[in-house]
Amino acid sequence: MEATAAQHGAASLEVASVDEVGDRIASTGYVCDDELATVVFLAMRMQRPLLLEGEPGTGKTALAEALAESFDLPLVRLQCYEGIDASQALYDWDFPRQILHLRALEAVAGTTDVEEAEKSLFDERFLLARPVLSALRQAPAVLLVDEVDRADDEFEAFLLEVLSTYQVSIPEIGTVAAATPPLVVLTSNRTRELHDALKRRCLYHWIEHPGLEREVRILRSRAPELSDQLAEQVVTVVQQLRSDAGLLKPPGVAETIDWAKALHLLGSQELDLAKAAATLGALVKYREDDERVRKALDRMLAGQ
């Protein structure tokens, strides 16, 4: 038996140009440059997975979310972690419901033979679709494989097989194939190198921290309530901290947004030392970084 995503109302996902991709993504509030819009366009037209690498907080996960929103597609997220295996990504069986089903059969003694009872245990109603299977069945969809660098080699090999065919085989049911391949976005913070075989299967893009002008645009998009002066000052300080402060974990764009919102909630229209120091918990997450940032803020704001 073959189950395809066409049975679930598949539709084609087509884009005409790079500009269309950029405009759609921008409509969600995600500020996308031409290079990123181009690689997304190519991934969609070539039906290839998109591998995004970069420092934490550069907008890799947010891009997948923006793609799902802008194309009105379901977003299916697979969060990777050390020790994840294929069953946790693909499917499992609902054992409690299977046991209840067996008990129900026992209560009606003599109506079902053993072989039929065993076959009924692996009916599709007892199948628990994990993210990969769910994405194949919801064609088209966006499948976000988040922080794939946290998984191990065996899981990479599993992903490579699935992404090569966009189908999986379930012995008890049959093959599930996506009529329209999902738009797959893999993210990596590069805590380890991914294997070449997986990278060859994907289109690759490195996402840098945005420049000053683009980060101001992102901040204004995500927090329009901020004053123009506060937005520009916050981004200027964050950019300097990333490049000069020697932090263990430089703040990402998400931290920039959180810090700016925290300052706004305290009534700031411009950056001042007291409120900046009081809200550092939104910007840095290590005690050592907190100390370095306080010293850097003293120097930067004293020189204004």
Rank of each mutant, 00 (worst) to 15 (best):
P224S: 09
I173Y: 05
P224Y: 09
H209N: 08
Y166E: 01
H205C: 09
E208T: 13
T175A: 05
A178Q: 03
P171L: 09
R192Q: 15
E225C: 06
T187F: 04
G211Q: 00
Q229R: 15
S164A: 10
I207Q: 05
H195L: 14
L198H: 00
R220T: 06
E208Q: 11
Q167M: 14
I207R: 08
R222V: 15
Q229C: 13
T175V: 10
A177T: 11
P224L: 04
V176D: 08
I207Y: 00
I173H: 05
S227W: 06
S188H: 06
D196P: 09
V184S: 05
Y204R: 15
E225A: 13
Q167W: 11
H195P: 14
L183T: 05
R200W: 07
H205P: 12
L163H: 01
R200F: 11
Q229S: 14
A223T: 00
A197I: 01
Q167H: 10
A177Q: 13
V185K: 06
L219T: 05
H205F: 14
R217K: 12
S169R: 15
S164L: 00
P181A: 02
L194A: 07
H209F: 15
V184K: 02
K199W: 12
D196W: 04
R192D: 07
I218V: 10
R201C: 13
R201A: 08
L198S: 04
E193N: 11
R214Q: 10
L203R: 06
L226G: 10
R190C: 14
R214M: 08
T191Q: 13
R220W: 00
E208V: 11
D196Q: 12
P182T: 02
P182N: 03
I170E: 07
T175M: 08
L186H: 07
P210N: 04
L226Y: 07
T187G: 04
T187K: 03
T187E: 09
C202Q: 05
T180E: 12
E172R: 11
E213Q: 13
A179M: 02
T175Q: 03
T175H: 05
E193T: 09
G174Y: 02
L219H: 07
T175S: 14
T180S: 13
L183H: 00
E213V: 12
R201K: 09
A223G: 09
E215K: 00
I173F: 03
A197Y: 08
V216I: 11
A177G: 08
V168G: 10
H205R: 15
G174S: 01
T165M: 15
V184I: 08
P224N: 06
L219N: 02
I173Q: 02
T165P: 14
R214E: 10
R201N: 13
A223V: 05
R217T: 06
Q167T: 12
P224I: 13
C202Y: 01
E208I: 10
